[in-house]
């Protein structure tokens, strides 16, 4: 079995009196797809926000490749190789589809405002590679034909793919997908499942928060079930499907 790439130790997040994450322990193995599931309010999105530095955990720690990332700012964590998408697609609407993906190259490039203003040779060369990589990752998510469309004009399903393409352009170590199938039809969801498989084959570790159980059971190597901010179960899809605690939470208790 592959080594652990992302490890959470006793992660706790409180909002006022509410405990959103309650001393959570888990590890994600390199090159796998780990799904995080649980009822609404279980703390799934909070977990993603803590992992990406949107909020800092109240206590506990998260380590990427053995170095602590919890408490760092979002942009610092991004630089260390964690990319994400959002539950409500956060595309940059004033730009073209290609430009959105080009933003994904931010951490891999370095020309500042002055070099850009003077349009130095270094900047123009860098700009060409950013554009090439952008087009490449647009093709990976199948949006190559839409490159020069305004991003605001594409439908929601396409926006989700665009977000994934943008995150892939950062060539991350870990990719977090926050409900990528929300708002997609069956056909689109099936294509998404295939895409996630492709991403795993690229060597990227994927963590996915998702409600679509069919998709989760189909693509996940491991599943973490949250309930009220605590770990309810953790294991392979077969293990989770057979777990009486999970069945109780999802289907109600049999008297």
């Amino acid at each position: 079995m592959a080594e652990t790439i992302l490890e959470a130790v006793r992660v706790r997040k409180e909002f006022g009196g509410l405990v959103a994450l309650c001393d959570l322990d888990f590890g994600v193995r390199r090159g796998t797809v780990t799904a995080v599931i649980g009822p609404n309010g279980a703390g799934k999105t909070t977990l993603i926000n803590v992992m990406t530095g949107v909020t800092a955990p109240t206590s506990g720690s998260i380590a990427l490749n053995g170095s602590i990332i919890s408490g760092l700012k979002s942009h610092e964590i991004a630089r260390l190789g964690i990319a994400r998408t959002f539950q409500t697609a956060q595309i940059f609407s004033a730009m073209t589809v290609l430009e959105n993906v080009m933003v994904g190259r931010h951490t891999k490039t370095g020309c500042g405002m002055i070099a850009s203003a003077l349009s130095l040779g270094r900047m123009r060369r860098e700009e060409r590679t950013i554009c090439d990589k952008g087009l490449y990752y647009l093709d990976v998510v199948g949006l190559g034909a839409l490159a020069h469309q305004p991003a605001a004009s594409v439908p929601i399903g396409t926006q989700r793919l665009l977000e994934i393409g943008r995150a892939l352009a950062a060539e991350p170590v870990v990719l977090l997908l926050d409900e990528p199938a929300a708002g997609l039809n069956t056909q689109e969801t099936r294509a998404l499942g295939k895409l996630i498989g492709t991403i795993r084959d690229m060597g990227i570790t994927v963590i996915i928060v998702e409600h679509d159980m069919e998709l989760v059971m189909d693509i996940a190597d491991e599943i973490l079930v949250l309930n009220f901010g605590s770990r309810l179960a953790w294991g392979t899809p077969e293990h989770i499907q057979a777990s009486p605690e999970v069945i109780e939470v999802y289907l109600g208790k049999e008297d």
């Binding site: 940059f92 730009m95 931010h106 405002m113 003077l118 349009s119």
Partner: peptide, 28 residues
């Protein structure tokens, strides 16, 4: 030149979504 560069794109990101900009590694 600035607007059509890496810095310019980063600037334009702030307009739509600061949280996504930060998630892409931009120091907002």
């Amino acid at each position: 030149n600035i607007i059509n560069s890496r810095s310019g794109r980063a600037l334009r990101c702030l307009h739509s979504s600061e949280i996504a900009a930060a998630a892409m590694g931009i120091n907002v």
